[in-house]
């Protein structure tokens, strides 16, 4: 069974290019002046709102038009020439391809110069968070079981307790979610346990989701016993609000994917000055040492020490490999084989 995405399904005609954009959420933060900073983002409005408000504290004149879409929607919209001043996305591979194919503008400032090399590429893409992929569980479903700390243990637990977990496992629908696809392909590259885990999950009739927030919600409410590969930042946010005390975040010790949330200025951007100012602010927050009250972690919070392997997923042409249509088709076919067992 598949849960449909929380898409509002609003048909929206973009200025300049006539294309339909499937908008999930939209909000205009009015400013005192006439200028508008148009942001297209995959980040939930609730998560990104503090950043917009902080930006408007500095520049009250600039109105911020915030549109939430899925990463693949954003990717094709920008390729088709949709006019946005800033594109914020968690799908690094799609962002990278936009930059590589010339759909991004160069931006350089004192703030971006402070970014480490792995957090920017050609002054086109800038990372401002490091967010790990985690496993979120509902602890009632795990009563009497040892909490798994590696994929091997997770596989063993799922295999040994099919009754308990049947229909109660959720993960990204990698066909729909850009971030899910990124996590899946990176895991495929890094860990041989991934496909065995998929096989085991596939036997349990998993639920597929478009977005982390919905998955976490379902775990908190007890509809899911476990959600695999969800955004750690969202989970932590939810955990802080959770009253039931049943939700728990697990970080796999054998390997953890760490994603960089990135921002770029599309080639069609109009208000590049405000876009640059926003990038500077995001980068400064990304470089902060003190976690503070911000909903998204900084670059240093998860990248150092905790992550096993090579640190965050590398911003580089390697990201384009799985986006290749042939590769993508082959990967999805294999994924479907594993996940949708009859």
């Amino acid at each position: 069974m598949r849960v449909p995405c929380l898409a509002l399904g609003v048909i929206f005609w973009c200025t300049g290019a006539a294309l339909a954009l499937e908008i999930e959420d939209h909000h205009l933060f009015p400013g005192t002046g006439e200028r508008v900073l148009r942001i297209v983002s995959t980040t939930d409005l609730a998560v990104f709102e503090p950043y917009i408000l902080a930006f408007q504290d500095d520049r009250p004149a600039v109105a911020v038009d915030y549109t939430v879409v899925s990463s693949s929607e954003m990717h094709s919209a920008i390729r088709a020439g949709a006019q946005f001043d800033l594109a914020v996305s968690s799908a690094m591979d799609l962002q990278f391809q936009l930059a590589n194919d010339g759909y991004a503008q160069r931006y350089q400032s004192a703030a971006t110069e402070t970014l480490p090399d792995w957090a920017r590429w050609r002054d086109l893409i800038f990372a401002f968070t490091t967010e790990p992929a985690v496993v979120v569980i509902n602890s009632t479903s795990f009563t009497g079981l040892d909490l798994p700390v590696t994929r091997q243990e997770l596989i063993a637990i799922l295999r040994d307790n099919p009754d308990r977990f049947a229909g109660a496992v959720g993960t990204y629908d990698v066909r729909e979610s850009g971030l899910g696809f990124l996590f899946a392909t990176q895991e495929d590259r890094s860990s041989d346990a991934y496909w065995r885990l998929n096989e085991v999950m596939g036997r349990l009739k998993p639920k597929f989701y478009c977005c982390s927030s919905q998955m976490i919600e379902d775990v908190a409410e007890g509809e899911l016993a476990m959600a695999y590969n969800v955004l750690g930042s969202y989970a932590a946010e939810k955990l802080a609000q959770d009253q039931s005390g049943q939700m728990q975040i697990l970080r796999m010790q054998d390997f953890t994917n760490v994603m960089l949330r990135t921002v770029l200025v599309p080639a069609t951007a109009q208000n590049t000055e405000a876009a640059g100012a926003m990038i500077d602010m995001l980068v400064r927050l990304g470089m902060r040492d003190d976690p503070g009250d911000w909903p998204l972690p900084s670059l240093s919070q998860t990248s150092t020490g905790e992550a096993i392997g090579f640190g965050p997923i590398r911003l580089g042409p390697g990201l384009m490999v799985y986006l290749d249509p042939l590769n993508r088709r082959a990967f999805l076919a294999e994924w479907e084989n594993a996940m949708e067992q009859r």
């Binding site: 050609r122 590398r314 580089g316 042409p317 490999v321």
Partner: peptide, 17 residues
């Protein structure tokens, strides 16, 4: 099947498109 290394090696020496 495009091998990951085929592209990652291109990214290893420079930030070129």
């Amino acid at each position: 099947e495009l091998p990951y290394a085929a592209f990652s090696m291109l990214g290893a020496i420079s930030e070129d498109r």
